[in-house]
Computed example of a mutant assay.
Amino acid sequence: MNVTPARNTHPSTSPVPARPRALVGWRLLSLFYDLWPVAALWMLIAVPFTLGYTYLGHHAARENIAPFSALQWLLWLACFMATGAYATLSWRRGGQTLGMRPWRLRLVAVDGGVPAWKALWLRYAVGTLSLLAGGLGFWWAWFDRDRLTWHDRASGTRLLRMPKR
């Protein structure tokens, strides 16, 4: 006869935490990992800007793009939009960017489904503002009752840590 031991159901010894864990460390590791493909993307985007500035503008090859010029702002906008396309397409397609995969993080809508495009772009915009504010929106998860970041709340999405296979 197979006998299984009784489980302790006392509330004080329950392994389930009262509040979900903040995934701040995993999120930051994921962002660091995603920095590398995004940096490569930025370099590819910068090539036509640099070549155009050098050869069409008749400037020396060693001369940088003038600070606060229209061309520099256009380059920043192109990099911002390309990074957003990378993030939103990855989230929409499989719920994960390349950086989220090693740490088993998955983005879902509040109802557990695939988030809408509007929510994904809102998440990206608020997440960018959060990073520009010194990561304050990420650190907010330590104080939030549901352990959500600013961009989680604004977009109606959640970041889940998936179990090991």
Rank of each mutant, 00 (worst) to 15 (best):
A18E: 13
Y86L: 00
Y124Q: 03
L131T: 13
W91D: 01
P20T: 13
F80I: 00
R165N: 10
H151I: 06
A141Y: 13
P67Q: 02
S155K: 03
M1R: 10
W91M: 01
Y124G: 02
W36R: 00
R101W: 11
G112L: 13
Y86Q: 02
A6D: 03
G52K: 15
F32T: 13
F49V: 08
V24T: 15
T9C: 00
W117R: 04
H59Q: 15
G112W: 06
T157L: 03
P20M: 10
A85M: 04
L77Q: 07
V114F: 01
L148A: 14
L56Q: 15
G135A: 10
W103P: 03
N8P: 00
K118R: 14
N2A: 11
L131N: 12
F138I: 10
T83D: 04
G113H: 12
L107R: 06
R147G: 09
G137M: 08
R101H: 08
R158L: 15
H151K: 08
R21D: 14
A70N: 08
W139T: 14
L159W: 03
H58N: 15
H58L: 12
P5R: 12
L105V: 12
W73I: 01
R93T: 05
W73D: 03
W140S: 05
R106A: 01
P15A: 11
M162W: 09
W103F: 07
A6G: 03
S14A: 13
C79T: 09
W150M: 01
T97R: 01
L41Y: 05
R106S: 08
P102I: 04
F138T: 07
R101F: 03
Y53T: 14
L98N: 07
V108H: 07
G113Q: 09
L122F: 11
P15V: 07
L29A: 15
M162C: 03
R93G: 00
K118I: 04
V24S: 05
A141K: 14
A133M: 14
A125N: 02
A6P: 01
W42M: 05
G113V: 04
F138D: 06
L75T: 09
W42Y: 14
P163C: 09
F138Q: 07
S130W: 11
R161V: 02
L159Y: 07
P5S: 10
G134L: 05
R145I: 06
R123L: 03
R153A: 06
C79A: 07
S155C: 02
A39N: 06
A82I: 02
G99K: 00
V38M: 04
G99Y: 03
P20N: 05
P48D: 11
F49T: 11
L105T: 12
S30W: 09
G127W: 06
S30H: 10
L29C: 12
L35M: 09
L44T: 05
Y33V: 09
R106C: 01
L77A: 15
